[in-house]
């Protein structure tokens, strides 16, 4: 593996075990399967997926908040033993995370000054006045005036709280920042402001971002490369603009087709690309494509029996898709897909 890589994941798997119930049936939940991922310094990698895709679990594994069940993890070329719990990842590797819920991640009992100081405290202890200066600067960076240091999180708007969360993450001068739906809970205006701010900070501090979201448009805008996840697997990955403008995997296409349209004339004819069968609660078999029950072009032959692997798309560099029939999408869709 190349020394250029900041982080590399090889064949990562994560299984959550549910409690044994009365009949001794253990119901394992496979949150991640066969994840191979490379993260380069200075880039923004977007991870897009919906509920159950495993995107948050992946973010936590990169940070060390979750331990993978199997697989290997390398940070800057050196293997990180996944059997040992990494509690102080932030200080060890310089990785930080910003979560979705702005109010929940800030201790409501503390003033913002204390909230920020707490973060500094885990890394180093610097003398009083220079520490205060650092705190003030950190707020300035996220475009908040230093009087916010004296406020409590409950006295701030969601957007302001999220800025503080970002400021706190940046205080420790991290190299990598995982943004897990960091702007999703905010209104559209605040979202764009914050995203622009994040981009500015990235350039200034030469940060690497992992941008996790369910919003394909936001991910495509923010990231250089995008990884699309479904039910714990990577189904497509490549350059963000290619993924957004010329998606290959049926799920990615479906995701794009579901982006809400504001024009009522177009919205009223907007059609989902998903299969139109009656839904059941049956589980998708282990060795099938995870998308088989919703995919408009899936068949009984290959799609149920063999999980598709990520294969390179010849036309584009670094573009991979995990689908048996992606090349014939249009043809098959016209035949089978249209409800």
């Amino acid at each position: 593996m190349s020394k250029d890589l900041l982080v590399e994941l090889i064949d990562i798997e994560k299984v959550f075990l549910a409690r044994k119930n009365f009949m001794n049936k253990v119901k394992p939940q496979k949150a991640l399967s066969n994840i191979d991922l490379q993260i380069y310094p200075g880039e923004t990698l977007g991870i897009v997926g919906e509920t159950g895709s495993g995107k948050s679990t992946l973010g936590k594994i990169i940070l060390g908040l979750e331990r993978p069940t199997s697989g290997r993890l390398f940070i800057q070329g050196k293997e990180v033993l996944t059997s040992r719990t990494r509690s102080k990842i932030g200080s060890e590797y310089g990785f930080q995370m910003v979560f979705q819920d702005p109010a929940g991640s800030l201790n409501p009992q503390l003033r913002i000054e204390q909230v920020l100081a707490e973060a500094l405290g885990t890394v180093e202890s610097s003398p009083g006045s220079s520490r205060m200066v650092r705190l003030q600067q950190s707020l300035e960076e996220v475009e908040l005036s230093k009087e916010f240091l004296n406020r409590y999180s409950g006295q701030m708007s969601g957007g302001q709280q999220q800025r503080v969360a970002n400021a706190r993450a940046l205080l420790t001068k991290p190299r990598l920042l995982v943004l897990d739906e960091a702007v999703s809970a905010l209104d559209a205006v605040t979202q764009s402001h914050l995203l622009r701010l994040l981009k500015k900070l990235q350039k200034k501090h030469n940060l690497t971002y992992i941008f996790i979201s369910h919003d394909l448009e936001a991910v495509a805008e923010m990231s250089d490369r995008t990884v699309v996840m479904y039910q714990g697997r990577i189904v497509e990955q490549g350059e963000s603009s290619t993924i957004y403008h010329r998606p290959k995997h049926p799920y990615t296409r479906g995701l794009k087709a579901s982006i809400p349209i504001r024009d009522p004339r177009l919205a009223k004819t907007q059609r989902s690309l998903m299969r139109r069968d009656l839904l059941t609660n049956e589980e998708v078999p282990q060795h099938a494509c995870p998308f088989v029950d919703r995919c408009p072009i899936s068949d009984e032959a290959k799609c149920i029996t063999a999980t598709p692997q990520l294969t390179c798309v010849p036309e584009y560099s670094n573009h991979k898709v995990a689908c048996h029939y992606y090349r014939d999408f249009d043809e098959r869709f016209n035949q089978i897909g249209k409800g």
Partner: peptide, 16 residues
């Protein structure tokens, strides 16, 4: 414990 599991099915699947 047994009765609670029977009455509230969510308890059956919770992590212990």
């Amino acid at each position: 414990d047994l009765a609670a599991e029977k009455i509230d099915p969510r308890i059956r699947n919770m992590k212990s």
